[in-house]
Computed example of a mutant assay.
Amino acid sequence: MAAPARRLCHIAFHVPAGQPLARDLQRLFGFQPLAVREANGWRQLALRSGDAVFLVNQGAGPGEPLYGLNPHHAVPSATNLCFDVEDAGAASRALAARGCSLPVPAVSVQDAQGTATYAVVSSPAGNLSLTLLERAGYRGPFLPGFRPLTSAPGPGWVSHVDHLTLACNRGSSPTLSRWFEDCLGFRHLPLSPGEDPELGLEVAAESGCGGLRLTALQSPVGSAVPTLVLAESLPGATNKRDQVEQFLARHRGPGLQHVGLYTPNIMEATEQVARAKGQLLTPPKAYYQQPGKEEQILASGHKPSLLAQQGILLDGHAGKFLLQVFTKSLFAEDTFFLELIQRQGATGFGQGNIRALWQSVQEQAARGLED
């Protein structure tokens, strides 16, 4: 591996001035302002909930925003993943030797709290770039160049980022997997027993036409990097009904489709999001009437009626369960959403829930086309 990632530092977004992402993260999901930088036409606001940090870059300055790139993308987008590495300079040289494009070679930034060194590498996943950050000697709350913000403690609904899902062009998952494995030290994480890394997990649509292919990658042992999930549509899907193809069209190419945020109490978190008027995705009506679903929910210690009321999906067996709920898009272009996830011993993603998510997003997309 060229540059083993040790942890996820933050996820960066690029949005036009006035776009409400930063406000919505605070009002709907309990994020709190952490630090801000305003310079050269950019307003960069870092927000935090637990260990999850989102950096919202607003505007379009003449140069690059600090710690990232201006992708000049057509729609608001999650455009950068920032990873902590041991030596940013050595990592950037190793990636360059592999033929990777580094639009920002290793550069150091310093303020009164210390120094950080970073480099930005282009990824093969659409407009998504990766920042390799070395900040072991920095003592401030975020990064050099940012002014710390003081805010009241947040509600604590989210503790960390659980996983990141990229929507990919059909047939590109094997190439992307190899790139993340070779360059950042990721390795294949089977989602089903005996899974072929080249094929991933195939989730067929109920109609038998198309479906979803998922390939999961986990970080090196001992690191604290979220699982990376690659999603692509299977052959046979129609562009009008396939959620991945719709993302690719509306986003103008591959990119980060959603972020899974871990919450220690999904019931409370979902209640608070709903109370703040956050829009959650409605599961298929038949989900909670599946044979054995009620018994499964009761075995997990939850009430079926409460999960159904809040739209929370549950999957698992043998005392290990996974609970998930999904938001509607945070952008008008319908290109990015969040997931709240709670694990009760489960380590995967729940094949039943994957199918339920597929169906619910498909139904939502169909309703949107009909409106």
Rank of each mutant, 00 (worst) to 15 (best):
P148E: 05
H14M: 14
Q44S: 14
H188R: 08
G140F: 10
G61S: 08
W358M: 11
T227E: 14
G30Q: 03
L143P: 07
P103G: 03
L128V: 15
P235E: 00
A365W: 05
V53N: 02
P264M: 02
A125K: 00
T227C: 15
A5K: 00
R98C: 13
P190V: 09
V107K: 07
G301C: 08
V15S: 03
E294P: 01
R178A: 14
L132G: 04
W42C: 01
L189C: 15
L25I: 13
S300D: 08
L130C: 11
H10F: 13
L191E: 01
R43F: 06
N169Q: 15
Q351E: 14
T150A: 15
G211L: 04
T227L: 13
K328E: 15
L306C: 14
G154M: 12
A299I: 03
L230N: 07
A152F: 06
S329L: 03
G350S: 11
G200V: 10
Q289N: 14
T215G: 01
L314N: 06
A356F: 09
G222Q: 01
P103F: 01
T282S: 10
D371H: 15
V120Y: 00
F180H: 12
V121S: 13
L55D: 07
T263Y: 08
T117H: 11
A249P: 00
A125N: 05
L8E: 10
R213K: 11
G352K: 10
H188S: 12
W157K: 08
E245F: 12
Q296G: 03
P148T: 01
D111L: 13
T131Y: 07
A35Y: 06
G253F: 02
A90D: 07
A112L: 14
P71H: 04
D182T: 15
L34R: 00
T335M: 05
W179M: 05
T282Q: 11
R43P: 03
Y67P: 09
V85A: 06
A119N: 05
R23W: 08
Q58K: 00
A125T: 10
K293I: 03
Q310V: 04
Q257R: 13
E195P: 04
C9M: 03
G114C: 07
A22R: 04
L81K: 14
S159M: 00
L66I: 14
G350H: 08
S233K: 02
L314A: 10
Y288K: 12
A167P: 09
A119H: 04
L184C: 02
L191C: 01
P62V: 01
P71A: 04
T282R: 15
L55E: 15
F331I: 07
S177R: 14
H163K: 11
Q26W: 09
G156Q: 12
S122W: 02
Q257N: 13
H10S: 15
S129M: 02
G352F: 03
D242E: 13
Y287D: 08
